[in-house]
Simulated assay, not measured.
Amino acid sequence: MTTGLDPRGPRFAAAVTSVVLAVVVVTGSGWLLAAQAAVFAVGAFAGPGAAPYGMFYRRVVAPRLAPPAEREDPRPVRFAQFVGLAFAVVGAAAYLLGAPVVGMVAAAGALFAAYLNAAFGLCLGCEMYLRYRRVVPARG
């Protein structure tokens, strides 16, 4: 199967995201979290391969690796980007509007999810998508 997503790409992106979000939690930077929200937005609306971390993975990292043994459906990953976007928007708005505790909680929640994906391959947003699809099957 040549279509689909190299599953190592989202894990790479999650590792980069984890570093960015850790810096956000430590520094309380609403602007950095807003930048991460923009990255999530590109992944959510244009697809994970169009997001900056995904593009870097495809162009710089993947050519140095063996081809993936299998590929995965990009829809769960795209949904996970929407979930990350929601956390990042709430967190950035909270930091920038003077509610740092809410900002930190939102950033830490996103960091937790990104770290689980990077370290263990457990994508919480993907799992949410799959559970949703069991309840509400896709049409057509």
Score class of each variant (00 low, 15 high):
62 A>Y: 04
40 F>S: 12
64 R>S: 07
37 A>D: 13
38 A>S: 09
49 G>H: 08
48 P>I: 03
48 P>L: 02
35 A>P: 06
55 M>D: 14
42 V>R: 07
63 P>L: 12
59 R>A: 13
40 F>I: 04
33 L>K: 03
35 A>I: 11
66 A>W: 02
63 P>T: 00
32 L>G: 10
34 A>M: 06
51 A>T: 05
58 R>F: 06
50 A>R: 14
53 Y>P: 04
56 F>T: 06
53 Y>V: 04
34 A>S: 08
31 W>N: 00
47 G>W: 03
53 Y>H: 09
59 R>C: 09
56 F>R: 02
62 A>N: 02
53 Y>S: 10
43 G>F: 00
48 P>D: 08
54 G>L: 02
56 F>N: 04
51 A>Q: 12
35 A>G: 10
56 F>Y: 12
55 M>F: 14
63 P>Q: 05
47 G>Y: 07
43 G>W: 04
37 A>C: 06
55 M>K: 14
63 P>R: 04
42 V>K: 05
39 V>R: 06
44 A>E: 01
59 R>E: 15
66 A>G: 07
50 A>H: 13
43 G>T: 02
54 G>Y: 00
31 W>G: 00
38 A>K: 03
59 R>V: 08
47 G>P: 14
43 G>C: 03
46 A>H: 07
43 G>V: 06
45 F>D: 01
51 A>N: 11
41 A>I: 00
47 G>D: 05
32 L>S: 09
58 R>V: 06
66 A>D: 07
44 A>C: 11
54 G>E: 01
42 V>M: 08
33 L>R: 02
63 P>C: 12
65 L>N: 07
55 M>T: 15
45 F>C: 10
33 L>E: 06
32 L>M: 12
40 F>P: 09
52 P>F: 12
52 P>Y: 15
40 F>T: 04
31 W>M: 03
57 Y>G: 03
48 P>G: 12
61 V>K: 09
48 P>W: 02
54 G>F: 01
50 A>I: 07
48 P>S: 10
54 G>P: 00
61 V>W: 12
41 A>Y: 02
39 V>A: 14
46 A>S: 10
39 V>H: 05
50 A>C: 06
39 V>K: 05
56 F>M: 05
59 R>L: 15
57 Y>H: 01
45 F>T: 03
33 L>G: 00
58 R>S: 14
44 A>P: 04
46 A>M: 14
61 V>D: 09
49 G>M: 11
41 A>G: 08
64 R>K: 10
49 G>S: 13
50 A>M: 13
55 M>I: 13
37 A>E: 09
61 V>F: 11
66 A>L: 10
53 Y>I: 01
32 L>V: 06
54 G>W: 00
38 A>C: 05
42 V>H: 01
46 A>C: 09
35 A>R: 06
60 V>T: 12
44 A>F: 12
31 W>K: 01
61 V>N: 08
41 A>C: 07
